[in-house]
Design a protein around this nucleic acid. Sequence first.
RNA 1: CGGGGAGUAGCGCAGCCCGGUUAGCGCGCAGCGUUCGGGACGCUGAGGUCGGAGGUUCGAAUCCUCUCUCCCCGACCA
Length: 578
Amino acid sequence: MRMSHLFGRTLRDAPGDAELPSHRLMLRSALIRPLGAGIYSLLPIGWRVIRKIEGIIREEIDAIGGQEMMMPVVHPADLWRESGRYDQVGPELARFQDRGERDMVLAMTHEEVVTDLARQEIGSYRQLPQLIYHLQTKWRDEPRSRGGLIRVREFTMKDSYSLDLDEAGLDVSYRNHWRAYERIFRRCGLRFVVVGADTGMMGGSASHEFMALSPHGEDIVLLCPTGDYADNQEVATFRRDAPAAEAPLPMEEVETPNATTIQKLADFLDVPLSRTAKAVFFRGDSGRFVFAVIRGDLDVNETKLRKAAGENGLTPATPEEIRAVGAEPGYGSPVGVRDALIVADESVRDSPNLVAGANRPGWHLRNVNLGRDYEAQVVADIASAAAGFPCPVCGTPLAAERAIEVGNIFKIGTRYSEPMGATYLDAEGRSHPIVMGCYGIGSGRLAATVVEQHHDDRGIAWPASIAPFHVSLLALGGGNDAAPTEAADRLYDELTAAGIEVLYDDRSDRAGVKFNDADLIGCPLRLSVSARTLANGQAELKPRAAAESTFLPLAEVVPTVRGLLDGMMAGLDGSRSD
RNA sequence: CGGGGAGUAGCGCAGCCCGGUUAGCGCGCAGCGUUCGGGACGCUGAGGUCGGAGGUUCGAAUCCUCUCUCCCCGACCA
């Protein structure tokens, strides 16, 4: 590609509202342009990166038996009513009517379509297992898009779906995807960890997320330094203290003016946070009041609480709602409340004689004990794990890291096949629902995440496997001297003929402009020819990642470049295990 | 949805409080000339509904009201 013909120009300054490194660099290097909030065009250079990523994904999913296909973006709403998600999913699902006033949706994912296809095409156990996938546009009307391509509303996702006879078959499909995903992300040069995760709106029994560690990540993962444990914070657990062996003491009231927070209370009474009980109030989607109780030194994890309470969603309760169940904001405890689902964390079961609210302003209760002073309908782990908490496996203090979710895998089981009637007949003629898995990777987010991990203050430094071009070729010092341009033209032809992808900077700009653009766009190798190098019959070669350049005879350029690229690719072959 | 910030030339910004020349600066863009290895220089030039609507005023980028859009933090989220 000759830069003089390239559509899209590089920017010296990024727009002021772009903050993430990947967002700024992808704008500056002419990879993407915004059209609206969370909606982007991919310019030619950016599209080349995406196509390379998609190529890697195709190879690896094909390698585990995937069959690529294509499913529609617009779905009849009735299909989503069959699965129950039409009403279950919130406004992030875009709904509209066609000219016949039929309800339609824009696909945010494709489980319903796959399941519909499966019930049409699959009838017999002889036809299973199957693995199908596509790369398709999704629309999710996110409440808040952000960070360039990290979180957008319109995006392309590779999603694959496994169809199996039973759980054992699903286990195999799941494991295959896990391995394929590791290879995909390694080939893209990404550093990542795999963590256990919540299944969220997908439903199902198990889920893992592939997390690229990055200070700009939206998720927090908890990792054991020994490597024996890794989970998303939303599901992470930790080793609990042994229950305290302490006889229950008589409950007594104590006046605690202005002790409206657990910290003020602990300070006022001069007791550790771990000797207090904290109450947190929610209203569940079902309409029930959910009253969570947890020891004062811990925080409620809403994902865990939602599961423990059996609710689809939780909203913080209002002061009126809190008083309606007999509690008092700032002084709440489960003692004496009514019409509420009380969910206690294991910590309050195992910690006797806690200080809790008296449900009237300015007063607390000492020596409150679960089972004696109040009952909880649910006792469960609803506590948030955090940095420094003991690893649930080995007790080592956990580390907390921010991370970007670049892929995830779900065991959705019969969540869709059962309600939608996607069944097969076994050898005895009995009907069973197909057991499903689904597996997603967002290609644009993946590209942005690679930029987050591979850049410096001069620009992007692409891994060779997904670089838009292999080589930036610069013809320096044009002017009256046509020799550099002629030599660069020949190199361009030779490299291209050898199958090497070249971004040829044939513009009439000065050297500094070309160097800066080459560093910004970040092709793995940079070749320069000028009067200075040609005086010795040479070209200058500098890897993007290296500090120093080398000079080599023009005739050796193609084999040298070939060799360097092969070496770079070999380091990104996906088999590395780290 | 809550909190904060911002919309003035393609990009980055000033001007706004305290209304008053023809709305400015840098970069970029076009032409000519000189330059030519880390974002050159000179001259000339093009480019603006000051986000939109309404209002106050002799006069509005500037003051008031409404509204749209974008960004950041949070809530939310495969």
